[in-house]
């Protein structure tokens, strides 16, 4: 039996688009909150800025139930193995947001204790710089993440 390849491509593309659309508004995030950025994370998540408007209002504290890992705050070398473990425990598809400049590059903590950017231990999808980023900045990063999720393919 011959399969019309062009037709199948069209089908999967449409399926990807539908799934991406659905996924981008149901972000189950795991906030890995360590430091100062957590305060801005709180501010963003609560009523004043309300992350829920973007479908990301439901933090899950179990990595197995989450699909976006928010790494919020400085990661030290002592903590890096735990972070990696949380990442490994998350199920596919998963995305990682580096929240705050410490997670992006280490920020101004260029010293023996801190990891110079979490991308040295795991892949990162969206970087939100700022020390700490303002809530508007966080929401901007969230929208960028949604765009990325919407474009995602079925088999990542």
């Amino acid at each position: 039996m011959s399969v019309d390849a062009a037709k199948l491509n069209w089908m999967t593309t449409r399926l990807d688009a539908a799934l991406g659309w659905a996924r981008k508004f149901s972000i189950f995030q795991y906030p890995f909150v360590t430091a100062c950025c957590g305060m801005e994370y709180m501010a963003t998540a609560t009523s004043h800025y309300d992350m829920d408007r973007f479908g990301a209002g439901f933090p899950r504290f179990s990595p197995r139930q989450a699909d976006v890992l928010f790494v919020v705050g400085t990661i030290s070398h002592k903590l890096a193995p735990m972070l990696r473990r949380v990442y490994d425990q998350m199920t596919e598809p998963k995305w990682v947001v580096a929240f705050g400049v410490c997670t992006c590059t280490g920020g101004f903590y260029d010293n023996y204790a801190t990891v110079q950017g979490i991308d040295t231990v795991m892949p990162v999808d969206v970087y939100i710089p700022g020390c700490p980023p303002r809530p508007e900045n966080v929401l901007d990063g969230l929208i960028k993440l949604q765009e990325k999720i919407a474009q995602g393919e079925l088999a990542r």
């Binding site: 070398h77 890096a80 193995p81 990696r84 023996y112 990891v115 040295t120 231990v121």
Partner: peptide, 12 residues
């Protein structure tokens, strides 16, 4: 002790 002498458990 140099300020940026790192001894990571994982990672480079």
């Amino acid at each position: 002790y140099p300020i940026n002498k790192r001894q990571p458990i994982i990672g480079p």
